[in-house]
Amino acid sequence: MGGRGTFAVGNKVPYSYETVGTIDGVKVLQGTSGKHGLPEEAHSSVAYIKLKPDGTFHEMRFYNEHHYLITEIAYHPEPNLNNGNRTENILHVHEYPQQDNFRIRPAHRITKQEYEKYKKFFKGVPKIEKW
């Protein structure tokens, strides 16, 4: 996959991700040169996972049938959802309602239903006991 998981003006772009494993059938990607997030577009999968260096879940992205990013589940500080706290990791979800517009991404704390559906991917994330 290229820098953003795409092709540049019809030319192949060097891969900037590599698959380093899978969790329940979903590819775990790692950057090949420096830090980065997961791709905004996917060509071969409907979801990808990124882990923190210690192996803890960091984020998971989901793509529609046209391979565009539609949803992201993340485990990192999100001050807008956590009373301004910039140090405590929280599980939350970003929706991407507009194709190719990555600035508009409303966030909400993960719901119990979302948590139950995806918890098998949350490697190293403390279990949520209270809702």
Rank of each mutant, 00 (worst) to 15 (best):
R105F: 00
G10A: 06
N11H: 08
V93S: 07
S45W: 04
L38M: 05
L51K: 09
P106N: 05
Y115F: 06
H76R: 10
L81C: 14
H92K: 05
L38H: 06
L69R: 06
N101S: 04
F62C: 02
T111A: 10
Y75G: 06
Y63A: 05
E88L: 13
K50R: 07
G124F: 09
I23F: 01
R86E: 15
K12P: 09
N82M: 05
E88V: 12
T71P: 02
L29S: 03
K130C: 01
E18R: 14
P79N: 08
I23N: 11
I23C: 07
F62K: 06
K35W: 08
N83V: 00
I128V: 15
Y115R: 04
I23W: 02
Q30R: 14
T32D: 02
N89M: 08
P106G: 07
I70A: 08
E72K: 04
I90P: 02
V46G: 08
V125R: 10
T22Y: 02
F62L: 13
K27F: 04
A47M: 14
E18K: 15
A42G: 03
E65S: 13
W131V: 13
F102C: 01
S45C: 06
G3P: 05
F102W: 12
Q30K: 15
N85R: 12
L69T: 04
E40G: 13
I49R: 02
F57V: 00
Y96A: 00
G31H: 05
N89T: 02
E41S: 08
G10V: 09
D24W: 00
F57N: 02
Y15R: 09
E78I: 07
F122E: 07
R61K: 14
T56G: 00
M60E: 04
G124V: 05
K112I: 11
G55W: 01
P53S: 13
H67I: 01
P53T: 11
K130S: 12
E65N: 13
